[in-house]
Nucleic acid binder design. Sequence first.
DNA 1: CAGTGGTCTAGACCACACT
DNA 2: GTGTGGTCTAGACCACTGC
Lengths: 270, 270
Amino acid sequence: MPMAALPTTSTPTSSSALASDAAGATPPTTAAFSPLYSQIKALILQSLQSGEWKPGEVIPSEMDLAARYRVSQGTVRKAIDELAIDHLVVRRQGKGTFVATHAEQHVQFRFLKLVPDSGTPGSGGPAQRQVIDCRRTRATADVARALALRTGDAVLQARRVLSFAGTPTILEDIWLPAAPFKGLTAERLANHVGPMYALFETEFNVRMVRAEEKIRAEPAIDGREQLLKVEHGTPLLSVERIAYTYQNVPMELRRGYYRTDTHHYHNTLN
Amino acid sequence: MPMAALPTTSTPTSSSALASDAAGATPPTTAAFSPLYSQIKALILQSLQSGEWKPGEVIPSEMDLAARYRVSQGTVRKAIDELAIDHLVVRRQGKGTFVATHAEQHVQFRFLKLVPDSGTPGSGGPAQRQVIDCRRTRATADVARALALRTGDAVLQARRVLSFAGTPTILEDIWLPAAPFKGLTAERLANHVGPMYALFETEFNVRMVRAEEKIRAEPAIDGREQLLKVEHGTPLLSVERIAYTYQNVPMELRRGYYRTDTHHYHNTLN
DNA sequence: CAGTGGTCTAGACCACACT
DNA sequence: GTGTGGTCTAGACCACTGC
């Protein structure tokens, strides 16, 4: 009576598309148990990916989703809980659950951990952005590896400088796979307002969901000293970021060079 | 009939010691609602702090705690869930819930984010540790501020080098408030095995629970170049960490200098 | 086998936002 | 008031660990 699972009613374990080892070989081995709420989470995730609900919009209420998937409200709740932890949705009591977006004020620059030495992250006003270059090229071996492409595949490359209070502080080289970002030009990059990741959402339907960073200390060389207006050899924070969309698909490689004389990279360890 | 809260039965909102604005002034203002599970969490936290259950030990089962606090198992569960997210306890299905400790193999170096460029975090064997110095001094202004002390208060200061595969890679200056760490000597620091934070737990009953790091790029100067065997002025990653115990009480200031020629600081953004 | 954490349900009620 | 997320309960059953 309870425990109906998906469109096709069956036992909870073997119902959804999660049974990845249902091939031929070992019949009674470890069955890879997946709880119901986890399957529901996957289904909601599909709807998120497919664009059934777009960034900023409300998704159906917990009761509606419970009816839709034929499970209890508590099970849907636990699924949404995890999506909220992953920052894929945002809950607002009394209003509903919304698809997360990079365009909101209080989550802007979610992935930028460089903060001024004194004052709150947003103090000193917003950054001035200056796009120096944006061109179509071919992926070198390391860029291809980072973006899960093949060497020589088409990529878009951009370079920009972010300044705070008139001081150039961040130099970024950005590589994007050309296919999903067809039509992106230097003008569109330079003219849009708000975070770059918000532009990606609205214009190219690409949502950055997670990122990994590798941080090193490197001297300012190769012209970076001029762009950041520091002396040749000044230590800079080198931040290599790979940003991922859904399904852990890499969609951006970004090499940032941060001046750390008035700012620092802030991290919390739990 | 349900909803008895603490020792003194009453309505859930006004029961526990969380009502911080119950003084005299405004009677019907915002009541600072605190859910039951949150109060239970605070109570469990107290037992954790007071040492009723020690690191590595099991805490009572969810059913036992539910009986103890006169709430349902689900409410205790939600409280423990949050403690598990904070890494204060660890759940083990079928066995129980355990007080977290820094001494376990798979959580060692939980706060060290420097990893080799190739290979897993633990590859290349464990680090060789060399304690260079450990002395009792007085807090300078900045050290005092970081540790919530007063300038001139007694502190312990230590310096050590961590090497990987024979290469000195990390130089750390560490400041500890003298009072909680009475009796800590260079020998005890040098001779113990395992993470320093595990020593703090077992010997001084101090558990590091959370930390904040400020990261900068700085040249190797002031003798640090000799200790790390790099050329004068080589860019180093400067990592200033303040580690906190319960109640957000700072208990350690650590200034680390990392070579990033074979390692990098790794961070995941969600 | 019993004991523990983990899942799921159904129903009640509370806090919050909009209308 | 209505609808939404948020809390709490009581009870059932499942998965894992150890005796």
